[in-house]
Nucleic acid binder design. Structure first.
Length: 375
RNA sequence: UCCCUAGUAGCUCAGUUGGUUAGAGCGGCGGACUGUUAAUCCGUAGGUCGUAGGUUCAAGUCCUACCUGGGGAG
């Protein structure tokens, strides 16, 4: 996997580049729509590509392993064949699920024992079998198995957890080296930097992941309850250590403002459920600000959802979308998700342009003001 | 005309042998959501308990009359 940086800008760490995968190129900075169970909820692959202009989407090891299971995905010929998305795919390892499953999992040196949220059955994830599962799913980028600690963890816990994540990373990489891709195109393994909210741990973690020659590096364990300011600080600490010539992926982030601020700090890749989940729940992101389409003020507003939007769904009216969302019509969730994703992709596309032109910083400062507006 | 039955929040209904400031679901209004256990979750505003009397320390609850809906008899 090749990563070519072609633009940086003075006064900011923002950079623009191109990442090449077995399923095509990805322009960075990029936002990656989340498709947990193999689908970006409510969105056709065709619309992802042609309308939203997504360049890479996510899948999830935990969810796909539980259902439909690796046997089905292998029989399909991998996830790309299964869900008919022929662009790049990244799979998360399930570390975050083990974290969010809370009381139905138990960690040990070996791995994470957990109960399925679907049927309560018991399973064990180890660094080794998580790599194996991701070989079967066939994502272009696969993630290391880590422990994601809560935002309020204390130093001792964060340190012990980080050390476990580091040992797991080494095991992931060994397993990755021992095995081969199954579908004729290469896969890349991204390590994940943990260390919670402690700069010393973050720095040490970043130095540790560099011992592994990877095609990209991820920052995990952020946007899990800590203040945004802390998230930015941790990003700065980690990016100061990570190699310049490899893509950096800030996992799970975030709001449009979070993304711009993190691009400013040298992050290249993002993913977040926010555009889809919040969209289903009636929140729309636009360049003019945030809108809760359920609010009564939109009841009789028959103007387009977003005058400047670039998805075909933006021609539907606010009043109609409000009606659909309030009526729990599935089309409402689809329109809101599609609008939000198109907006997120527009946002990072414009960021790339601005970086290339050398005026990202001033554009970002203006945008951040606008994006925080409640419409 | 008589008998039975029901009337409690915008809607559909709970409400114990009478016992604190009458509740729920849905709907309304508002909020949350960050590597998806989420078409989810949280908050909030709405009621002279059909009307008028009576019994009682105390009535949505018991008694009487009337009003309205439903059913039955003639």
């Amino acid at each position: 996997m090749k990563f070519n940086l072609f633009a940086t800008e003075n006064g900011t760490k923002a950079r623009a580049g191109i990442l090449s995968t077995g399923h095509g190129q990805i322009e960075t900075p990029i936002f990656m729509p989340v498709g947990t169970a193999g689908s970006v909820k409510g969105i056709h692959a065709r619309d992802l590509k042609d309308d939203i202009q997504a360049q890479i989407i996510l899948g999830n090891t935990y969810h796909l392993y539980l259902r439909p299971g690796t046997a089905v995905i292998e029989a399909a010929g991998g996830l790309h064949k299964f869900n008919r998305w022929d662009g790049p795919i990244l799979t998360d390892s399930g570390g975050y699920q083990v974290f969010s499953l809370g009381d139905i999992r138990k960690l040990s040196e070996e791995g994470a024992r957990f109960q399925s949220h679907i049927d309560g059955s018991y399973h064990l994830f180890t660094p080794e079998n998580v790599i194996d599962i991701q070989r079967s799913i066939g994502a272009d980028i696969v993630m290391a198995f880590d422990e994601c600690t809560p935002g309020d963890a204390d130093f001792d816990y964060a340190k012990k957890s980080l050390e476990l994540t580091q040992r797991w990373l080494d095991r992931c990489f060994e397993q990755f080296e021992r095995t081969q891709p199954k579908y004729g195109y290469p896969q890349s393994l991204f390590p994940i930097v943990q260390g919670n909210t402690f700069p010393a741990l973050r720095k040490q973690a970043a130095i540790h992941v560099k011992t592994i020659e990877a095609d990209g590096y991820a920052i995990g364990g952020l946007s899990v309850g800590e203040p945004e300011k802390v998230m930015y600080e941790m990003t700065e600490v980690v990016n100061a250590e990570l190699p310049e010539n490899k893509p950096r992926y800030l996992m799970g982030v975030g709001t449009p403002v979070n993304i711009l601020e993190s691009i400013d700090r040298g992050v290249d890749m993002f993913d977040c459920v926010m555009p889809t989940r919040n969209g289903r729940n009636g929140m729309l992101f636009t360049a003019e600000g945030i809108m809760n389409i359920r609010n009564k003020k939109w009841e009789n507003d028959h103007s387009p959802i977003d005058e400047n939007g670039n998805s075909f769904v933006d021609f539907y009216s606010k009043a109609y979308l409000r009606h659909l969302i309030i009526s729990n019509e599935m089309l409402g969730a689809q329109i809101a998700s599609q609008h939000n994703l198109a907006f997120y992709l527009w946002l990072v596309k414009t960021a790339r342009q601005k970086i290339t032109e050398g005026n990202f910083k001033s554009w970002k400062n203006d945008m951040v003001q606008q994006l925080n507006t409640r419409l």
